[in-house]
Amino acid sequence: MNPLQSSVEPEKGAGLAMGLAYAGGEGVTVVFAEVITGGLEVNVRRRASQRGFGDDVIYYVRRRVFEGDSVTLDSTLTEMKDNDVIRWRFGDTLIAEKNKRVDRFTVNDDVLGGRFRDRLKLDNQTGSLTITNTTMKHAGDYDLQLNNKRAHIFLVVTVSVTEGDSVTINSRLTEIKDVVLIRWRFGNALIAEIDKRVDRFTVNNHVLGGRFRDRLKLDKQTESLTITNITMKHAGEYQLEINYKTVAFYLAVIVSVTEGDSVTLDSGLTGIKDDYPIHWKFKNTFLAEINKRVDRIAVYDDVLDGRFRDRLKLDNQTGSLTITNITMKHAGEYVLDTHTFNWPSYIHLIVYGELNISFTCFIYYS
């Protein structure tokens, strides 16, 4: 299990998201939802519309999984019927099929250069597809065709990086041919670009208050972007856009601290806007918030049996949160939601304690 993984039961959330997809009636129902697998919480957002195109149902689900973990893409069925046909595609490539009409059961794990080799498990009863040992190469769009219904599942892979280390986002994760435009974004901010049409290679170190200054390295030969000397400010969602097709990754930063010391969880902000509240959570429990809309600045240090009592300090200007006199009880995942970016940032805190060893030495004389 990934060190950032929590006790959330993602499959229940997945069932909820899929259930929303089928609520509709006649016409085309379009549903948008998010399910976090192996992550910190389950968020479901819904928007539905109907148009007169028969009984087709199209739904869009966003899933997130930690690198190295497994994720199950749910067909929503408890058992396939005799006439059911399920096809799973990654992009335009067929990777799995269960066809009860002709009694065909197929897993194509050698396609796309073997990126799925020995990683696909198709449930013979339900048609759900499990991807094991996920990597950044498995992020992207999955298409489920179930008879006359379709689902588009956008899989986001979360990569855990230790503070101070580097991470490389390779543009060659996709099979897109004739690439002319490559862009890397952090949230909505463009941080690097390769435009072959005008032979332009650009890194934008200055964006977001300079948090990427002297940290971006764009390799022209491999067409990859490396972020060096990672800090808490770099946790969040990154988007790789290739010829206007997007693949998303999460970067979770692992921070180490010694028991008894203090640590400041950096919001990455220099100021707080009136329209963007800030929330800090420890796993699923609220710790602190700043909400200028209602003029509220609060820390909730009595939660979780008081383990944070008199230990939380919230910076009113930046929203950064300091935890003093750290103990082992404070180790775990912290979630920052600034509403400035589309998705939260995740910081995993590892606490080291001192090991005290005492021994008695006996000296014998003869």
Rank of each mutant, 00 (worst) to 15 (best):
344 P>G: 02
135 T>N: 11
260 G>M: 06
8 V>I: 10
316 N>G: 00
226 T>P: 00
186 F>Q: 11
145 Q>S: 14
333 E>H: 13
212 F>H: 14
79 E>I: 11
99 N>S: 04
144 L>N: 01
3 P>R: 10
188 N>H: 13
177 K>T: 15
75 S>D: 05
153 I>T: 14
290 I>G: 07
192 A>M: 00
263 V>H: 05
278 I>W: 09
338 T>V: 01
356 N>P: 04
68 G>W: 15
92 D>M: 06
71 V>M: 05
76 T>F: 02
86 I>F: 00
61 V>H: 11
353 G>S: 10
235 A>Q: 15
278 I>D: 03
317 Q>C: 05
223 E>R: 15
32 F>Q: 09
303 V>H: 04
231 T>A: 08
285 T>A: 11
24 G>W: 12
209 G>S: 04
362 F>V: 15
253 V>L: 02
294 V>H: 12
226 T>N: 02
222 T>E: 03
131 I>L: 02
322 T>F: 03
104 R>M: 06
2 N>P: 11
89 R>H: 06
269 L>D: 07
280 W>G: 06
325 N>F: 06
86 I>D: 00
133 N>E: 07
136 M>R: 15
91 G>Y: 01
356 N>Y: 07
215 R>C: 04
125 Q>T: 11
275 D>I: 09
20 L>H: 11
19 G>A: 09
264 T>P: 13
264 T>C: 06
351 V>D: 01
266 D>F: 10
201 F>A: 08
339 H>T: 14
268 G>H: 14
151 A>F: 08
317 Q>K: 15
136 M>S: 09
38 G>N: 12
60 Y>C: 09
241 E>L: 12
342 N>M: 07
106 T>N: 13
270 T>K: 13
91 G>L: 02
65 V>R: 11
111 V>S: 09
309 R>N: 12
132 T>F: 02
3 P>H: 05
147 N>F: 06
193 E>W: 13
271 G>D: 10
336 L>N: 07
277 P>C: 04
142 Y>K: 03
14 A>N: 15
141 D>H: 13
299 V>S: 08
77 L>G: 00
126 T>W: 01
29 T>E: 05
99 N>Y: 03
122 L>Q: 01
259 E>R: 10
39 G>I: 05
186 F>K: 15
180 V>E: 10
270 T>W: 06
95 I>C: 09
9 E>H: 12
255 V>R: 15
291 N>R: 12
31 V>P: 04
91 G>W: 01
94 L>K: 15
322 T>M: 08
331 A>H: 11
82 D>R: 14
177 K>L: 11
95 I>M: 09
248 A>E: 08
198 V>A: 02
360 T>W: 09
105 F>P: 12
178 D>G: 14
127 G>D: 00
67 E>D: 02
328 M>E: 00
75 S>W: 04
203 V>Y: 06
312 L>S: 04
256 S>K: 10
8 V>A: 03
183 R>F: 03
288 A>Y: 00
12 K>I: 12
100 K>P: 12
26 E>I: 05
188 N>V: 11
139 A>C: 08
72 T>Q: 11
334 Y>N: 14
306 G>V: 06
215 R>A: 04
347 I>T: 09
293 R>Q: 11
130 T>P: 03
214 D>V: 10
92 D>W: 01
9 E>Y: 11
114 G>Q: 07
143 D>M: 13
87 R>E: 05
1 M>T: 13
135 T>F: 07
215 R>K: 15
